[in-house]
Design a protein around this nucleic acid. Structure first.
Lengths: 245, 245
DNA sequence: CGTGAATTTTGATCCGGCACAAGGGTTGCT
DNA sequence: AGCAACCCTTGTGCCGGATCAAAATTCACG
């Protein structure tokens, strides 16, 4: 039984699943908007169950039959693929309001695992598909979310195209900061993932990432409060490095 | 006035816009399916105009107000962003049946330019959005297309994460081969883009790409018929290199 | 079919990140 | 609290790709 305070802290759970994305028609510059109306959230809530997992547990695994999609509710999740070589390739880090579990040919193409204790709304495809086909407006919101994801993915491509380690890391930090809307302070960014997850994500070795963070710290642009939280000290400079492609 | 033969060669234009993607529910393994029913294509055709551009001309430019989306009809198109440094970052190469021109905040986020003489269906958002909101089934197909794109984008991320030049190139070639469905021979792959476009796409310098292609040729895996067409001689081996992550 | 421009290939040098390795910290478990 | 496993940092040598430079091929155009 969760005390009301704890529930409130993570946002607005009671209202049902939320999806966040940048609208592609609207002009609300730069803002990540809540896409669903209260009514739509209620509709989704009606067919959703809530899954709560401990750190390290799996929402689903690569290759499993895909029967449901998930919408992040609390905590942090990573999705990745195991490559033949045994290396993991991080696909994405997911938080509240993120959509995950889209399938190909009826099977999940990657594995979703909780980085921290995490919860998500689980919606059976069998329930979702008819709802979407009945409710074009709701489906439209999913569409918007997907275009948003495509763009996120492209930002990542741009990041990966860079050669320099510090640049990639700076870009990564900025990305994480930007996803961390609704935080008290925009400059305190939680990094629930391990360094090696970051390394996989930015496409560098763990050591290189470590060196790069050290450099940024020494330059006074960032500081760590423990291993899983960064404070951005010099936003301007960090942005400059991140944008300097 | 295009002679009928020329029109037929590029596929099934007369039937209206086509969209290709891998369905995410269906089990038709590995196949890129035509998503739209004849009726849906007709509906789109009714609100579409056809844009024909010469090589090097622009469908739209980064930052312009986004009033329409496009669906590839013939020829090849590239989309890219100009980075502050002046470098281009290729986002994607597009062919017939591909969707492009999705906006963010009402503006195009990249530039779309014809690599070869190319044509596309242009559909005004003002016409499309109501149609989608009226026709959930049609919209659903768009949704599927977008999930497909997300996955393509992720394949690219995986490609970029690799370090070795030959591996990236092999992967790129395989990707291009796979998109080139409906070709007479699967092993003759057109490469309408320049080497430097390829370099931008795979995230290496032009010289490195050149060296890598040379190596593949010397190893007897591929051969060039002119600069814009590759023949894949040893598919097995090429796949092996491409998959060897 | 020739000429100049653009694209591609080839060559040489330099630098940054990877691999390997070892030391110190932190976290989780009992 | 204590121990062990894991995670992160730091150091060194080496290799692959970027960069600069120049030659070679192809292409566009008349």
């Amino acid at each position: 039984m969760t005390p009301p305070a704890a529930a409130a802290k993570d946002g607005d759970h009671n209202a049902g699943p939320a999806i966040a994305a940048r609208r592609f028609l609207a002009r609300e510059e730069g803002l990540v908007a809540q896409l669903l109306t209260p009514r739509q959230r209620q509709q989704l809530l009606d067919i959703a169950t809530i899954v709560k997992l401990g750190k390290g547990q799996f929402f689903y695994r690569e290759g499993q039959e895909a029967k449901a999609i998930f919408i992040g509710r609390s905590g942090a999740v990573k999705t990745y693929r195991e490559l033949p070589s045994g290396a993991k390739r991080i696909k994405s880090f997911l938080f509240a309001r993120d959509l995950f579990g889209l399938a190909e040919n009826g099977h999940y193409v990657n594995t979703a695992r909780a980085l921290t204790p995490a919860s998500a709304y689980r919606i059976e495809l069998e329930d979702l598909v008819p709802l979407l086909q009945r409710d074009a407006a709701l489906e439209f919101q999913f569409l918007i979310k997907l275009t948003h994801e495509i763009r996120e993915s492209q930002r990542r491509v741009i990041m990966l195209a860079r050669q320099d380690a510090i640049g990639r890391l700076a870009m990564f930090l900025v990305m994480m900061r930007d996803r961390n809307v609704e935080a008290k302070s925009r400059d305190v960014v939680p990094l629930p993932m391990s360094r090696s997850d970051v390394a996989d994500f930015v496409g560098h070795s763990l050591e290189t990432v470590s060196r790069a963070t050290t450099k940024l710290v020494k330059q006074g642009l960032i500081a760590f409060d423990g291993r899983h939280q960064v404070r951005i000290l010099d936003n301007v400079q960090l942005e400059r490095i991140a944008a300097n492609v």
